[in-house]
Write a protein that binds this DNA or RNA. Structure first.
Lengths: 207, 207
DNA sequence: GTCTATACTACGATAGAC
DNA sequence: GTCTATCGTAGTATAGAC
């Protein structure tokens, strides 16, 4: 299926080179088709870019759906610990996604959009991030009832930052850890520390 | 001074568009000079790119130097609390840098390099990141003697991630917080939560 | 040192054959 | 639907005037 192949290559190239840096010629060639297929299927370079964002959002949403459903159930339980565990699970799922090699191309795409958001960011946020953020926020509020709404939001953002650095700052992380790549061993270490940090943040007693 | 003007514009353009996306024509025009000045001063597009990385590294190193010197003194003190406070200060300094508008152009440049490191990343790491990381690591080890060396390194990386998301995931952070921009008010909230989180991570008693 | 002029390559879009 | 061919524009590098 040519459109799908085009989308995968487009995510790779747009993520690596940016919208203006990537060339429709190269994308078409690497997809094994002619440049004019892009015009035909997506209307042009910009249409392909937006379609790539939608494709990423759909993939992430599908991958996170089960964890989010489980978390929303946990948020209804009376014990605060259930919310803590559910949030730890979401965070770990997020971290695992960041560690998985398959996330590299679309992580590049998203990080680029975060620096200079276009319409594509809107689609990414609404499709992939907003559902995770909303659930995480609900759980932070349950786990830390002492925080105001804005404090809970800030806490959620910062906790996500710990997982996000596994992609956004991977090169520096590897050097600090003294490893060539974030393999299974380094990933397990980081996930364990992330869990310990998050547990400690979420368990703090109200003053 | 034309070379300096070229460097500032280059950081802006390379950060926004990437190495291949930026054009020497535009950089020269925005610097008020001819395209061939780039060849003369930096030997070509690639030379300008590496010089831009060096320029960024120098600026960051200068900005962080006083905080690092103070931290190294604190690391010598016998009380564990001195190390904790010094690390909180470094983290807050880092967060403030991420929040400051001036950091936007070179943050874009650095984040781009993290995704696909070139020789420029080497210069950025050695010049700007390595000194901060080494000091932070020293302080984490002092504050949390129960952690192994690798655990301390992972903890340092994750804690930095909390501050880094203020740049790398700023667009999403703004949406989650429900604000248009990370102004002084939002910045103060985030820094306060970051301090609380870090304090809790660093103070955890050994099991 | 800084400029203009130019050579050469690659870009995105589109028209039209099949 | 997918291809080839072509148009106009913009890219880097470089030679040479001043």
């Amino acid at each position: 299926m040519i459109p799908n192949r085009l989308l995968e290559v487009a995510i790779e190239q747009f993520g690596r080179l940016g919208f203006e840096g990537a060339s429709t010629r190269d994308i078409a060639r690497a997809s094994g088709t002619a440049m004019s297929s892009i015009t035909y299927h997506f209307g042009g370079k910009e249409g392909l870019y937006l379609a790539a964002a939608d494709h990423i959002a759909r993939q992430i949403a599908e991958a996170q759906a089960p964890a989010l459903a489980a978390a929303r159930v946990a948020a209804e339980r009376p014990e605060r610990e259930a919310a803590v565990e559910a949030l730890l699970a979401i965070l770990d799922g997020f971290a695992q996604m960041m560690l998985r090699p398959e996330s590299e191309p679309w992580a590049r795409f998203i990080i680029r959009e975060q620096q200079a958001p276009t319409e594509a960011f809107d689609r990414l946020y609404r499709g992939a991030m907003q559902p995770v953020a909303a659930t995480a926020l609900l759980l932070v509020a349950r786990a830390r009832p002492d925080l105001t709404d804005q404090e809970a939001r800030a806490t959620a953002v910062l906790m996500m930052g710990q997982a996000m650095i596994l992609r956004s700052g991977r090169a520096a992380a590897c050097r600090i850890l003294g490893v060539d790549a974030l393999d299974a061993e380094a990933g397990a270490l980081l996930r364990a520390r992330l869990r310990a940090n998050a547990l400690c943040i979420l368990s703090e007693k109200s003053k």
